[in-house]
Design a protein around this nucleic acid. Structure first.
Length: 558
RNA sequence: GCUCCUAUAGUGUAGUCCGGUUAAGCAUUUUGGCUUCUCAAGCCAAAGACUCGGGUUCGAAUCCCGAUGGGAGCACCA
């Protein structure tokens, strides 16, 4: 063994390492560490005396088996195993609130939970968490559905939290009657202050009868803010969430599906606890800002003698310089700094889609992030790398020139040229008509010298006879393709002008990046017009872009 | 302020539960090479990490204690 180790590490080994290896593989020696370590030292020094060549000979003669390369460690695929998970019996869920457009953070929660359901052959629930009529709208509900569909996430059950209002009331009354909840009529500021100071208020001493009466009053007499139902937690608890939190409150706004049918609405904790329990959710994973609520949710379910799901948490997903929260995005839209929620600079699902990010890439990317609780600010280039791999295989290759310069070529022997749409995969060919008048891109033009040769990709070599604002050249028959600049081109006659939009980071630190959207007027081949909207293109030597419309393309990435 | 969570290369992670067969694996990034009628893709190679300080142990990324950095919660939002 010493021999092997020495050979693998340049002819030298150390006794400590050999000792570790022996103890690691043969536990029976662990009680005799002292004795064997003496032996090991002797062997090690003997081995180190040998030269690398001598070691190799020794190995070949006596232990040929160790020359066989070691197996690589297989990396775990996918998500880590769930605790207490039984094949076929796992139920997970994704409970978004329809209060905004879905973004990459939603994608993470949805993908992780759906993957787990898949992994265990279980069920996956979409539950619209709509218990705050003031914030929720059909528009958002629909946007979330569209986003999830785009991501390719499938659900076994689709429901809304508000489907179970009567049940929440039932459970709420049960809590009141068992003395585990009470109606508090204190002022909002006082409640908050008491929470901070860990003091109970007088309402918590009210008897059950009074609480029942007040609960009835919440239905009509009390105004929003006058009364709330609080869970009898522990005002002295270190976990502030446990200090008699809200279970129900009065909201008079119109709910987007139920209208004004109800005015007492359950809080998040109440709703989630009951819903996860009755929906049969076995494993509830959500982002870690909810971590403190785990204890509360379990306390509520204990108080009601209801089944508890296993709860897990993962870090929030955000990209550097790409804000996720409505609080930041909304003003940007209002000020016209970004156009809408589908602005390609935004990490919304719509934004990512318009930018040309594929749902498969998002899934892979999220899976690669793992399930850690450490804060991550994922760099966008990781997503791009995944996306590039998906997109490369079926992106048509097209020519596009920016900052166009004219080039006229004399004695062209042909009037059209056929160019392959993809270098490896069979995506057909296109024919481009040519008459000797081309556009080439300004960046290439700068490096072109009079008297030199360039190659117009797929066409042929050109001997440059004049450089300047406009270029002139002569066609070279059977030009050599080695060691010569190869550039893309577009015929002037059929050039189609489009706007190229290049999204950049929205924020540098806290500061809005005024140059976050670069716009270029570029020429591309007429073939562009034949493509479907949303198709991914690779503009040769420029990068991958998504066709946004007949006149506009969005740069995806290099 | 109080409470909780967290810490592995530039970045994201695997390994940590159950210390040794991993002088730390993968991906991304960067650089070089091969290939190529693209600066893409593909292939090959290189570079690069266990936050710090103690303790336990023959042996610590892994267990314990402390410090420090980062994040979250302390809403009648979810």
């Amino acid at each position: 063994m010493a021999l092997q180790n020495a050979f693998e590490h340049g002819g030298e080994t150390r006794d400590k390492i050999i000792l570790g290896k022996i103890l690691g593989t043969k536990p029976e020696f662990r009680s005799k560490v002292k004795e064997i370590s003496v032996n090991i030292s002797e062997i090690v020094s003997a081995v180190n005396q040998l030269s690398l060549e001598e070691q190799e000979i020794e190995i070949k003669e006596n232990f040929p088996e160790i020359l066989i390369p070691k197996e690589k460690i297989v990396e775990r695929e996918g998500l880590p195993e769930l605790k207490d998970a039984e094949q076929g019996k796992v139920i997970t869920r994704f409970p978004p609130e329809p209060n905004g457009y879905p973004h990459i953070g939603h994608a993470k929660a949805a993908i992780i939970n759906s993957e787990y359901a898949k992994m265990y052959g279980g069920k996956f629930i979409l539950r619209m968490d709509d218990t705050n009529p003031e914030a929720e709208r059909m528009e958002y509900h629909a946007a979330i559905k569209v986003g999830l569909e785009w991501l390719g996430i499938e659900f076994d059950i689709v429901k809304s939290t508000s489907d179970d209002m009567e049940l929440f009331y039932e459970k709420g009354i049960e809590l009141i009657n068992s003395g585990k909840a009470y109606v508090c009529t204190c002022k909002r500021e006082d409640i908050s202050k008491n929470r901070r100071e860990r003091k109970a208020c007088k309402c918590s001493r009210g008897d059950i009868e009074k609480n029942n009466k007040n609960w009835e009053k919440m239905n009509d007499k009390f105004k929003p803010g006058d009364a709330i139902v609080r869970f009898r937690g522990d005002m002295k608890a270190d976990n502030a969430v446990m200090r008699d939190p809200v279970l129900f409150r009065i909201i008079e706004g119109k709910h987007y599906t139920l209208g004004e049918k109800y005015r007492i609405w359950p809080s998040y904790d109440m709703a989630v606890a009951i819903e996860d329990s009755i929906d049969g959710v076995t494993h509830a994973y959500r982002s870690k800002e909810f971590e403190l609520r785990k204890e509360l949710i379990e306390a509520i379910l204990d108080a009601l003698n209801m089944r508890k799901p296993a709860q897990g948490f993962f870090s929030r997903l955000e990209f550097k310089g790409m804000p996720i929260s409505k609080r930041i995005i909304k003003p940007l839209i209002e000020e016209g700094k970004v156009t809408w929620y589908d602005d390609p600079r935004l990490p919304t699902l719509e934004g990512l889609r318009r930018r040309g990010i594929k749902p498969e890439a998002i899934r892979k990317f999220i899976m690669s992030l793992g399930l850690t609780k450490a804060n991550t600010l994922a760099p966008f280039d990781a997503l791009e790398a995944f996306n590039r791999k998906f997109v490369d295989a079926d992106s048509i290759r097209l020519f596009m020139v920016s900052n166009a310069k004219k080039l006229s070529v004399k004695n062209l022997p042909i009037s059209s040229v056929e160019i392959s749409n993809h270098p490896i995969n069979d995506m057909g060919k296109r024919t481009i008509d040519i008459d000797g008048n081309f556009y080439i891109s300004g960046e290439d033009a700068q490096t072109i010298k009079e008297g030199s040769q360039i190659r117009l990709l797929g066409l042929g070599n050109i001997h440059i006879t004049k450089q300047g604002i406009e270029f002139e050249g002569e066609f070279v028959e059977n030009g050599d393709t080695k060691d010569i600049p190869k550039i893309q081109w577009v015929p002037q006659k059929t050039a189609h002008e489009i706007k190229m939009i290049i999204p950049k980071t929205l924020f540098n630190g806290d500061e809005f990046n005024e140059d976050s959207l670069e716009e270029l007027d570029v020429y591309t081949e007429p073939q562009y017009l034949q493509l479907k909207e949303g198709e991914e293109i690779q503009f040769v030597r420029f990068g991958y872009c998504r066709k946004d419309s007949q006149n506009q393309a969005i740069f995806t990435h290099k």
